[in-house]
């Protein structure tokens, strides 16, 4: 192997290195939780400030929050349907907001200036554990939504047009969380890596358009994740006739 430039580059970027926190006999990725707490804190601060004094004529942050609320409601309503979207709106909204602040926080905040003993701070969604956790929550949610709305008739969905679909639908239950988690993880990590590599190679001007592209991708990924989660839940609660 030796010290190829490629190796040096990744040594600089510290890909796949984590700051481990040992709690009892379990280990967690400290940098993921640190950034997620900071970003969740920022999100909650925004929410608390915006809902402190709400009026019928919205002012300031309340406008932003109402815009977000309306956006999330439209998303949930179009995907899940008029009947049960209210139950799932907080979950879809939380997914969207959490992924959005994670992605944008990872891209916009100069974490690089905070040195850690190991690993580096970045978007929590650039860690596979976070995206798999979110994707598994989505899987649990659509199973729960289907079973609580239709009982055991939910499993009719597996043989819906014809029983031939059964194996495909079972495989789908595994591919859904897999694609959800890897799509988000891959996009965000790739964006971070591209920006880091460009900054490393050409520190001036060139990374800026890529950073803007990264912001765009980040927002799109949050929207895609929330929309797909809502779509899966909607698919599970949909009545077949």
């Amino acid at each position: 192997m030796g010290l190829s430039p490629f190796n040096l580059l990744f040594a600089e970027l510290e890909v796949g290195k984590h700051l481990y926190w040992q709690i009892g006999n379990i280990r967690i990725h400290g940098q993921v939780f640190m950034t997620s707490w900071i970003l969740i804190g920022a999100l909650l601060t925004l929410v608390v400030v915006g809902t402190k004094k709400m009026e019928r004529d919205p002012k300031g942050v309340q406008n932003l929050l109402e815009f977000l609320w309306d956006y999330i409601r439209d998303l949930a309503r179009t995907q899940i349907g008029e009947k049960v979207y209210r139950d799932w709106m907080p979950f879809i909204g939380t997914l969207f907001l959490f992924i959005f602040v994670s992605n944008w926080g990872g891209a916009l905040i100069p974490w690089r200036f905070i040195k850690l003993p190991s690993g580096e701070l970045g978007a929590p969604t650039a860690d596979i554990n976070t995206t798999v956790a979110l994707a598994l929550l989505v899987s649990l949610s659509y199973f729960y939504a289907g079973l609580s709305n239709k009982g055991l008739r939910y499993f009719e969905y597996y043989v819906h047009p014809t029983p031939i679909m059964l194996p495909f639908k079972i495989v789908e239950d595994f591919t859904k969380p897999l694609s959800l988690s890897f799509r988000l993880f891959g996009n965000i990590l790739a964006d971070e890596l591209v920006v880091a590599v460009l900054v490393f190679l050409v520190p001036l001007v060139l990374p800026v358009p890529v950073m803007f592209l990264g912001l765009f991708t980040s927002a799109i990924q949050a929207l895609i994740f929330a929309t797909l989660a809502a779509y899966y839940i909607g698919e599970a609660v949909e009545e077949h006739h």
């Binding site: 993921v32 969740i40 979950f91 939380t94 860690d127 554990n129 979110l134 929550l137």
Partner: peptide
């Protein structure tokens, strides 16, 4: 590198869902 980050993150997101439901 999967470890306890995964379930803890899931719990954290569920808690965040309830908090955001009440606050937002």
């Amino acid at each position: 590198d999967f470890d306890a980050t995964l379930p803890l993150m899931a719990v954290q997101v569920v808690i965040l869902t309830f908090i955001l439901n009440t606050l937002f």
